[in-house]
């Protein structure tokens, strides 16, 4: 097991956002976490990445309890998050942003290879190397956020709403790239509002409702599940 969440409770002040979440991710899988706005998707990502501490429960990564580790320490363990929306450094160039992704790494030649890999996956970023990231379009910023997360060469890539605010064409494109990243051997946990895309690309998925897991199964099974179709896919 690569990642295990055991009874994770996360609260903002007195308001509980996650009421005892249990999730696991096997090595090599693409696992999706779907749910409506406010279901706790981003809170789950904050808990796993360590941006926010949790109130109770445990987070185990590669058999090691990382619950008490800070976000920057978890990066060193191999967890890397592409945050939701515009989670890039707006004042830095594309290359500087990618460099930040490799902040913890000392293996320069390998970092160079990952630069090539990211530019391969996202030719757009290659064209815009010197551009100040804040001046790019939403789609390009999203690509940068994913590319930057890959620069850490993570064992587990966490993607928070990679499709948010993007045009349908671009959503398709981003998910194709995500599938490609998975095929290259990176395990992925992706949180998505776009259930159709997420479920059709994921090996397994969890359905999150108001801070609780209400359903789990393979991506294909959930795609066929009538209640899921009604609630998340807009088909009766």
């Amino acid at each position: 097991m690569l990642l295990q969440l055991e009874d994770v409770v996360l609260a903002y002040g007195k308001i509980e956002a996650l009421h005892g979440l249990t999730i696991d991710v096997e090595e090599g899988e693409v696992v999706a976490l779907i749910g409506a706005n406010g279901a706790g998707k981003t809170s789950t990502m904050r808990a796993v990445s360590g941006v926010r501490g949790i109130q109770s429960g445990r987070i185990i990564f590669q058999g090691e309890d990382v619950t008490k580790l800070r976000a920057d320490q978890r990066v060193r363990k191999g967890l890397s998050l592409a945050p939701e929306g515009r989670g890039i450094f707006p004042g830095m160039t594309v290359v500087e942003n990618l460099d930040m992704g490799a902040y913890t790494r000392r293996d320069k030649p390998e970092v160079g290879k990952d630069f090539d890999r990211v530019f391969d996956l996202f030719p757009r970023l290659n064209e815009r190397r010197k551009q100040i990231a804040g001046t790019m379009s939403g789609g390009e910023q999203q690509m940068l956020a994913i590319g930057r997360a890959l620069m850490a060469r993570p064992k587990l890539l966490l993607l928070d709403e990679p499709s948010m605010g993007l045009a349908p064409m671009l959503i398709q494109q981003i998910f194709t790239i995500i599938t490609e990243i998975a095929e290259q051997g990176t395990t992925i946990l992706v949180v998505e509002q776009n259930a159709k895309q997420a479920l059709s690309r994921a090996d397994r998925a969890y359905v999150l409702e108001t801070g609780r897991i209400v359903k789990t199964g393979t991506g294909a099974d959930l795609l066929d599940d009538p209640s899921i179709r009604e609630a998340y896919l807009g088909v009766a």
């Binding site: 990445s49 360590g50 941006v51 800070r70 976000a71 920057d72 990066v75 060193r76 890397s80 998050l81 945050p83 989670g87 890039i88 450094f89 707006p90 004042g91 830095m92 500087e96 460099d99 930040m100 992704g101 902040y103 913890t104 930057r148 850490a152």
Partner: peptide, 17 residues
């Protein structure tokens, strides 16, 4: 670059390690 990252966005800087 780490200093500039924290100045721009402390949470995201932490996510970079």
């Amino acid at each position: 670059r780490g200093v500039r990252a924290v100045a721009q966005d402390p949470d995201t800087a932490a996510l970079m390690g």
